[in-house]
Design a protein around this nucleic acid. Sequence first.
DNA 1: CAGCGTTGGTTTAATAATGCAACCAATCTT
DNA 2: AAGATTGGTTGCATTATTAAACCAACGCTG
Lengths: 150, 150
Amino acid sequence: MVARKSLKGDYCPSARSLDVIGDWWSLLIVRDAFDGLTRFGEFQKSLGIAKNILTERLKTLVASGILELVPTSEGGARMEYRLTAMGKDLFPVMVALRQFGERHLFEPAEDHSLLVDRASRQPVHLDIRAQDGRLIGPDETVIVRIPDEK
Amino acid sequence: MVARKSLKGDYCPSARSLDVIGDWWSLLIVRDAFDGLTRFGEFQKSLGIAKNILTERLKTLVASGILELVPTSEGGARMEYRLTAMGKDLFPVMVALRQFGERHLFEPAEDHSLLVDRASRQPVHLDIRAQDGRLIGPDETVIVRIPDEK
DNA sequence: CAGCGTTGGTTTAATAATGCAACCAATCTT
DNA sequence: AAGATTGGTTGCATTATTAAACCAACGCTG
């Protein structure tokens, strides 16, 4: 391999996102972080990932500003990995992935975990809407370039 | 590597989604498909991906039901890759990734492409809501297991 | 309708990414 | 203070990705 192509400078925001979290493990780590995992060992056990790879991924996620390394809440000298505000902004991505999986990747009779509103205990849902509130699908959208204001 | 772990049987829907589209190239291909690309050569040129890898990814995406191989609209014997209905259901994932990128991966002054409603030419937006319409963030949600109805 | 460029791949060899296991230092527990 | 746990690092084996060369089928041109 001659260095995997970097999308850092790509003009498309999705591409840049994928540049940061588009590899095999990162989003799984983020999912676990949303599930409340914080410690190296917890991620390692949950994912079954090789430790050296986990080390590297965590470093990258911290460097990208998605996770931060903070002293444990229990006060020890140990550290824990926590989602930053930026990391929490990945919530819609996780919900969208979850929704897709629920719809297409489970047998009708098959059991799966469910994301619910803490208050009502009812499933949350995700919508894409136009400014006037209309629901929007892929065929009702276009991609434009932001006109350069010069 | 000893065979990358498969998440096919995972209990978490996000994990299953990542199992299908979580590798480095697949979502970029899907993004291009949403942008209207259909031909092998178009993807190859757009992404700069090695041809054998593209071949393999396209095969996987077709096998997963995200793309389908149909005769060209121009009637020739050539084929083109099109998003299936299932593939189009990845739209929220793409929008979420885009939104994240827009918010966090561009300099304030930096130019980027924008997804707009075809009718109004205004940006679309993505919300996660509870059943009663309240906007919901990651801290207002919990993951539960669907109670087995037996 | 023969020749030739284009399209959509396959194959091969080199290199990068990943995995596993062994090791290790610092912490934490008792 | 001793042993176990945590959070890594290191080295080597294996897999994935790449670039480049090659190739067959299509389809356009004269």
